[in-house]
Structures are given as C-alpha cells and as structure tokens.
C-alpha cells in the first residue's frame, strides 16, 4: 500500500486519505458564462503527468494539496492549502436578509 505524507500527520497509509479532485479555480458566480461553469463543474483535465490535487486526511479532516505524477505514480510533494490560498475571498457585498 502506498504511503502519503500528510503535512499535518506525517507519513500515513494512502487508505487513510480521501481524494478531493483537481485544484481548479472557481469561475465568477455572476459574470462567467454558463459554458464556463459547465466546463468547471462537469469536465476535468485528467492529464497524463503532473497534477495538483486536493487530498484530505480522513481521520483528522485535514485538507492539503498534493502534486502527483499520474504516469509514474509518484507523489512529488504535499503542502498545506495556505501556501496556495493566501488571501481572504469575498463575494460582492450585497445586503442580504
């Protein structure tokens, strides 16, 4: 069984982790067109080679990012999400009730 290094918990069996899909940036919920949203929601790149993916250490619910090579089946590196997402995200500040 493969091992994966969780940035929080260290090396663990890969069966302890949940795959969370490719890292993709979400389109703008208001301004982007429907086909852009359809592409985002229903199509995935699935490249042969280097991929950036969400992974979660299931037992601790800790999300992180993994760089993996799908051809050689190597996990190249794993790192906390804070390295990728550094700024607060806000949507348009309409008053809501």
């Amino acid at each position: 069984m493969k091992l994966m290094r969780c940035p929080l918990n260290g090396w663990r069996n890969i069966s302890e982790f949940t795959y969370g899909g490719e890292v993709e940036s979400m389109p703008n919920p208001v301004t982007d067109a429907s086909d852009v949203w359809a592409e985002y929601l229903f199509f995935h790149q699935n490249p042969a080679g280097l991929v950036h993916e969400w992974w979660c250490h299931t037992a601790t619910s800790y999300w992180f990012i993994a760089e993996r090579n799908t051809v050689t089946d190597e996990i190249i590196k794993t790192y906390p999400t804070s390295e990728l997402f550094q700024k607060r995200v806000d949507f348009s500040q309409e008053e809501s009730t």
Binding site: W63, T81, F85
Partner: peptide, 23 residues
C-alpha cells in the same frame, strides 16, 4: 456530518474566513 464538516473546511481553506469550525 463528516462530509459536511470536511466540505466546510475545504471551502474555508480557500476563503480564509475568520472562523473556527469544529466537529
């Protein structure tokens, strides 16, 4: 609940809102 909790954590990893989320 586990899925809901993980979903909240994952979204907030991207949004970086000032909250603590605990299961």
């Amino acid at each position: 609940v586990d899925r809901v909790y993980q979903s909240m954590l994952r979204w907030n990893a991207q949004w970086r809102l000032n909250v603590d989320i605990a299961n």
